[in-house]
Computed example of a mutant assay.
Amino acid sequence: MGNASITTRGLNHFFGKGDARKQAIFDVNLEIERGSLTILMGPSGSGKTTLLTLIGCLREVSDGSVSVLGHELNNADEDLLVGLRRRLGFIFQAHNLHESLTSTQNVLMGLQVHGGGNPQKQRDAAHHILNLLGLADRRDYLPSNLSGGQKQRVAVARALVSNPEIILADEPTAALDKESGHKVVQMLKSLGKARGTTTVMVTHAPRILEMADRIITLEDGHIVSDQRQ
């Protein structure tokens, strides 16, 4: 437990009320080590994204326990949840970029939730991460002038620029070609080694599985396999 970034105990989750109430997560018990790259797998509707959003303070934890960076989420107040979200980086399949902002400005949004900071240092940090992701020549482009893969890499840069302690990624490489996808996951692995950043990622991409430290498979809200590599 001492080295775990994320712990769940007896975690259940339900959608709907009354006759429409349906259980989506069943008695999930996990301990995810700091600095590790964990992949969540399973068919559509198996609970992967629901589990990711519970860990990410994006859904209320009401049945069982989720502890993130040492803080219990069940019955947590909004101030704690907001504070924790600022320590997390989110990469979603839909890139969610602001269409009126350039690549650099979109990445800067990932720093502005933290308030304050030196504007020039923030801009340098944004440029550095865009350069690492092969977007040096697209820094001043609007999303409408970027390809789908380039937009997704901007979204990845926005999630990583603030050096989050945990990265939660839902199909982050789905829009990327093989080389770009590999580069993104390699960067996440490097952050784990260098900074102790913990990554939990939903993916179906076979080429990425071999890079994971651990592969957890869900079916119908149950963990059916938990393999360490």
Rank of each mutant, 00 (worst) to 15 (best):
L51T: 02
N74R: 12
G149E: 04
A194K: 15
G47A: 08
D220P: 01
H204V: 03
T38H: 13
T198D: 13
A136L: 09
L108P: 00
D79F: 02
R214A: 06
A155K: 11
P172S: 13
Q105Y: 09
I25K: 14
Q150M: 12
R85G: 01
E179V: 00
S100Q: 01
A125P: 03
D79Y: 04
S103T: 14
K183V: 00
G192A: 10
I167A: 09
D226Q: 07
S147L: 02
V184A: 10
L191A: 13
V202H: 15
L84K: 14
L80S: 09
I32M: 12
N118L: 03
L135Y: 01
G47S: 05
P172R: 11
N145H: 14
H114F: 00
L88Q: 05
N118D: 15
L101H: 01
L130C: 12
D140V: 07
M1G: 14
M187K: 15
K17T: 12
T173R: 14
L135R: 13
G148I: 05
T203W: 14
S190G: 11
T7D: 10
L69A: 13
S36G: 02
K121S: 12
Q105P: 04
Q150C: 03
L132W: 00
F90N: 09
G149K: 08
T199V: 00
L81I: 07
H128R: 15
